[in-house]
């Protein structure tokens, strides 16, 4: 209990420190205001003081303000929804086949040794390098985005799952067989229940990776989505909006992670 409190305390402390640095940085990097030669502030049409230059490092309040404007005036929610839809479609397209293939590879040593080198080869090509080719093949749109997420996650996940399945101690298999389990039911009775916590762990990693590629693909070739909001903000020197976009991705990522960890705790009580 005390260690729990301690760690919570230190987390809070780190956050407070970062926040303070942020505020200080924002204060320090503030461009100041334009002045008339007589020293008075020059005002814009609304009667507010004009800035001397763009704000490159906005304060937390400014970021929140921008986030609020984005949400209320600029249909940012729709962008978030589109991004989530894309990441959902992308993950669905890779996770389902990766599970099936991964488990098969994990069980079958021969196919594992045949396929693993190929996968390792593909895995070493940075998925981002596929973007031009994918645009040529699929144009710009959902298929291309899903394809990039697929390339970015499928091979990685397949290999991880195959590895997990292959490393399940053979004692469990033997025990199940001598207790009368039919060989074709081993997947349900041994592999899935034993591998589940690790599978969820893999999913957590994969979701993080998927967010990376989603943002990249949205910056490169999309008109909507969080990534495109960020890249557009850069074009118009709206740093606050860009940071609001980053902040949103961070929050969504943490929520995903928490959900998966919760699922793991719920389904795999034996691990905790």
């Amino acid at each position: 209990m005390t260690t729990n409190l301690k760690s919570t305390g230190s987390v809070v402390a780190v956050f407070v420190l970062l926040f303070a640095v942020w505020i200080a940085g924002a204060y320090w990097s503030h461009p100041g205001y334009q002045t008339h030669p007589d020293g008075t502030l020059s005002l814009d049409d609304d009667g507010l003081p004009k800035l001397a230059g763009p704000i490159l490092f906005p304060s937390p309040a400014a970021v929140l303000q921008d986030l609020y404007r984005l949400l209320v005036r600029q249909s940012f929610l729709k962008d978030i929804g589109i991004s989530l839809m894309r990441i959902g479609a992308g993950l669905l397209s890779s996770v389902v086949p990766a599970f099936i293939l991964g488990i098969w590879l994990g069980i079958n040593a021969f196919s594992r040794s045949a396929i693993t080198p190929l996968f390792a080869f593909i895995q070493y090509i940075p998925p981002v390098a596929f973007v031009p080719v994918l645009i040529l093949w699929f144009g710009i749109g959902l298929p291309q985005q899903v394809a990039l997420l697929f390339i970015g996650t499928f091979f990685y996940l397949t290999l991880m799952i195959a590895d997990t399945v292959a490393n399940i101690p053979s004692a469990y298999r033997d025990a199940a067989l001598t207790l009368g389990a039919k060989p074709h039911l081993l997947i349900w009775r041994v592999i899935l229940p034993f591998g589940l916590p690790e599978f969820i762990q893999h999913l957590r990693v994969i979701v993080g990776i998927a967010w990376t590629y989603l943002t990249v693909v949205e910056m490169v070739s999309a008109e909507t989505g969080i990534g495109s909001v960020i890249i557009n903000s850069q074009r118009y020197l709206q740093t606050g909006r860009a940071m609001a976009g980053l902040f949103t991705i961070g929050v969504l990522g943490v929520l995903c992670d928490l959900a998966l960890r919760g699922t793991s705790r719920l389904l795999c009580r034996w691990k905790y």
Binding site: Y172, T178, L179, L196, C268, W270
Partner: peptide
């Protein structure tokens, strides 16, 4: 394998998830 022939293994082979 058959359930008529039971096997008690050397290491702990209990299924940890059950």
């Amino acid at each position: 394998p058959s359930e008529k022939i039971g096997f008690v293994f050397q290491s702990y082979s209990l299924f940890p998830w059950l």
